[in-house]
């Protein structure tokens, strides 16, 4: 059996003795997707940060690409993090750097191996074209709108073509049109590169897009996955967090059928 990309084993993360997540266990296999739902403060961001070793568990073990990172020294984590991309909830673009420098930032740390300096610029342009922001190269993050910053964040998260990409609330606070655009970008990134994807969101529709649509390179657009013969995208599971605990894990059908009042609040039936 191949190694899961990410595995949580009874993980507890606490701040000053107050647990933010408690006894959380799940795993994500190669090429699979997870959609994490949950109320504000339920620990979704903490899960993502713990996955990359930005936060350390007080109990339990976290395996990233098969390696136990719970107590790994920061220096050794860098090699693993180089294979991951992350979009932070507030974007976390470096506001002293231009958009071009922001998107190029992850490449600086791999430069010698994969990206010689003369290739960086064309790679950055390509990544920004992918999110339809090729004209913003010289601007600063403060000069862009919230939705544009989010897209720059997506470009930065994906520029090294990481095997695992984490998205923290990519659509929060955006109008429905921009939100759907962003979701299709995420699906596009996922399907073009077969990247393992974990997305935190408050919108059930985002999860549905992840589960029901895939990117068709021929038409350069999303299409319902059932057109290809199978009903749903494979390997996608929903996780629901409640006050630091994982209260639901299953596919979209199970989520929609769930009788738990908390879980079913996240399901919007249309």
């Amino acid at each position: 059996m191949p190694e899961p990309v990410l595995r949580f084993e009874h993980v507890t993360v606490a701040f000053d003795g107050n647990p933010a997540i408690e006894d959380v266990s799940f795993e994500v296999g190669h090429g699979e997707s997870r959609v994490i739902l949950g109320a504000a403060g339920s620990g979704k961001t903490v899960i993502l940060k713990t996955s990359l070793g930005l936060l350390r568990p007080v109990a339990g073990r976290v395996f990233l690409f098969g390696q136990d990172i719970a107590n790994l020294p920061e220096k050794e984590l860098f090699g693993l993090r180089a294979r991951c991309g992350i979009l932070f909830q507030e974007g976390a673009l470096f506001d002293s750097l231009t958009i071009e420098e922001n998107v190029a930032y992850p490449l600086e740390n791999h430069r010698r191996e994969n990206y010689p300096p003369d290739k960086v610029r064309s790679r950055v342009e390509e990544a920004l074209r992918f999110v339809e922001l090729a004209h913003t190269l010289e601007k600063f993050p403060s000069q862009l709108s919230g939705g544009m910053r989010r897209r720059v964040g997506i470009a930065r998260a994906n520029i090294t073509e990481p095997a695992l990409v984490l998205y923290d609330s990519p659509t929060a606070g955006l109008d429905p049109i921009t939100a759907n655009n962003i979701m299709s970008l995420i699906v596009k990134e996922r399907d073009v590169r077969q990247a393992t994807t974990i997305i935190v969101t408050q919108r059930f529709q985002d999860g549905k897009i992840m589960a029901k649509y895939r990117y068709n390179p021929a038409t350069e657009d999303l299409e319902a996955a059932s057109h290809n013969g199978d009903a749903l995208v494979k390997g996608i599971q929903f996780l629901v967090m409640k006050q630091g605990r994982l209260v639901f894990e299953g596919d979209e059908g199970a989520l929609e059928r769930s009788a738990d009042p908390y879980v079913s609040k996240f399901v919007m039936r249309d």
Partner: peptide
Amino acid sequence: SMKVTEQIDAMRALGTD
């Protein structure tokens, strides 16, 4: 400001100490 806007975390995540 970098800390509270998660830029420090971003830096660590993107491979810079």
